[in-house]
């Protein structure tokens, strides 16, 4: 029996310590996705909290034969989509939503000259379309497969593959626009 299965079974019995351990292990994952999708810290906290309570409420529905990470992210992604729909119906709320990219840009404006290529990538990520950014982060950060990302986002694998390809291409172009270049020696014949 896997460690996750044992932890979940203790959570199902209502053991608070186990529930806290579960949260310690997975709340960062859920919040990270919410923050990437919503681009606003307070909104992300609220949606992540809602998602995690839903996780505990529906924990018995998790198929213990499958990894738990995609299941958690599916719940979080669904809640984020619902939050984004509500936000789109409330135009005045758009003003309150701080765009993740501009927040990052403001935060690091004075440090832009010192950014390394990894930090440049993080900055460029904030400017991506939500779907592409989520897809890129799930693949490269959370290491989910195409199939798992497709289940989380409710899309076919082909769509995920296309989104990931476009995300990489757009990121590369943004990096080039900012003057970041690849190692030129790689383009030279040896």
């Amino acid at each position: 029996m896997s460690e996750d299965v044992q932890l979940v079974q203790r959570c199902l019995s209502g053991d608070e310590l186990s529930m806290r351990a579960f949260l310690g292990k997975y709340q960062g994952l859920v919040f990270s996705l919410c923050f990437r999708m919503l681009g606003h810290r307070e909104d992300a906290e609220d949606v992540a909290q809602d998602s995690l309570v839903r996780v505990f409420r529906n924990l018995e529905k998790w198929d213990q034969q499958r990894p738990i990470k995609p299941w958690l992210l599916t719940i979080a992604a669904n809640r984020c989509r619902t939050a984004l729909e509500k936000r789109s119906k409330l135009p005045s709320q758009n003003d309150l939503a701080i765009d993740l990219a501009s927040e990052r840009r403001e935060h690091s404006k004075h440090e832009q000259d010192q950014l390394d290529i990894g930090e440049e990538l993080e900055l460029a990520l904030g400017e991506l379309r939500d779907d592409y950014r989520t897809c890129f982060v799930m693949y490269h950060q959370e290491e989910l497969s195409y199939q798992e990302i497709g289940e989380v986002l409710g899309c076919p694998q082909g769509t995920i593959k296309t989104w990931l390809h476009r995300a990489r291409a757009q990121l590369a172009r943004r990096l080039q626009e900012r003057g970041v270049v690849a190692d030129p020696s790689a383009l030279e014949t040896t």
Binding site: L23, Q27, G28, F31, S32, F35, R41, A44, E45, A48, Q49, L52, D116, I117, G118, E120, L121, E122, V137, H140, Q141, R168, A169, L171, A172, R173, L175, Q176, V180, V181, A182, D183, A186, L187
Partner: peptide
Amino acid sequence: EHLLIGTALAAWVPQRPTVDL
């Protein structure tokens, strides 16, 4: 683009915002 994004990914340390919910 492949070389650029590949190099950036290798240097990327994903920022996972800290939170305690």
